[in-house]
């Protein structure tokens, strides 16, 4: 059994809006071990993003605890959490969030800028390596606004990988893309998971995607509704081949 890198213990998160309290998470517990590819699903407002933000150390729980790589984040202050994000977490967002007017390499270098242990030279080398890994070797010096959505998301994935994170967190990473590009991105994630052993948590609305992950967690109203292991993982690459070809 691989070691647990994420341990979520009775996690609760309340938001106070005016005089009301919104219970976004009402007590969620699970653990994730290294090498898993977990999809998190649920209806809108079920608390998926809230959970992912907590796992990504962007937010702190109202109650409960959460351990990343054995370290409890409850006692950490803002700066310590920032450093943790810098070293152990890679984020991929629905809206890419690349810096405008900036090349792919510079975008990917970004997390390493906040890491003093990496020299400028090393930083560039790693960024290029990371971009090659997502299939953008020929787009290194293209600016973000000169790329398609799918390419931009690949840059974002390269950026998430460049610091060699313990875990990659994706919040609706394919939400803005067409079906074909979605499968391309998904197959990239699968490749990262299966070939490089990256642990991935992938939040999505699309129930189809569950068949491509190794485990699926379904949330409803801030609670875990289902937590199933998928023994029969479909290949996104194959699914991509089966898609009807557009006019060549």
């Amino acid at each position: 059994m691989a070691k647990n890198i994420i341990e979520v213990i009775n996690l609760k998160r309340n938001f106070i809006v005016g005089s009301e309290t919104v219970h976004a998470l009402r007590g969620v517990s699970f653990s994730i071990s290294a090498g898993e590819f977990v999809t998190i699903m649920g209806t809108s407002g079920s608390g998926k993003s809230t959970l992912l933000n907590l796992i990504g150390c962007l937010d702190t729980p109202s109650e409960g605890d959460y351990k990343l790589d054995g370290i409890s984040i409850k006692q950490m202050n803002k700066d310590e959490r920032a450093m943790l994000r810098n070293r152990k977490i890679g984020f991929v967002f629905q809206s890419y969030n690349l810096l405008p007017k900036t090349t792919a390499v510079e975008n990917v270098e970004l997390p390493l800028i906040y890491n003093n242990e990496v020299s400028a030279r090393e930083r560039k080398r790693k960024a290029i390596e990371s971009l090659k890994a997502v299939g953008l070797a020929d787009r290194l010096y293209h600016k973000s606004n000169q790329m398609s959505g799918g390419q931009q998301q690949r840059v974002a994935i390269a950026r998430a990988l460049v610091n060699e994170p313990v875990i990659v967190l994706a919040d609706e990473a394919t939400g803005n893309l067409d079906t074909r590009t979605s499968f391309e991105i998904l197959s990239l994630f699968q490749e990262l998971n299966q070939k490089e052993g990256r642990t991935i948590i992938f939040v999505t609305h699309n129930p189809e995607l569950a068949s491509f992950s190794s485990r699926n967690i379904v949330l409803r109203d801030g609670l875990v509704l289902e937590d199933t292991v998928n023994k029969n993982i479909a290949s996104a690459h194959e699914a991509l081949q089966k898609l009807p070809k557009l006019d060549d």
Binding site: K78, D79, A82, R85, N97, L110, P111, Y114, N163
Partner: peptide, 16 residues
Amino acid sequence: TREIGLRMSIGARGID
């Protein structure tokens, strides 16, 4: 604002 959010999410501290 979004750039700032992004920088923070990838590890920039307040002081940075």
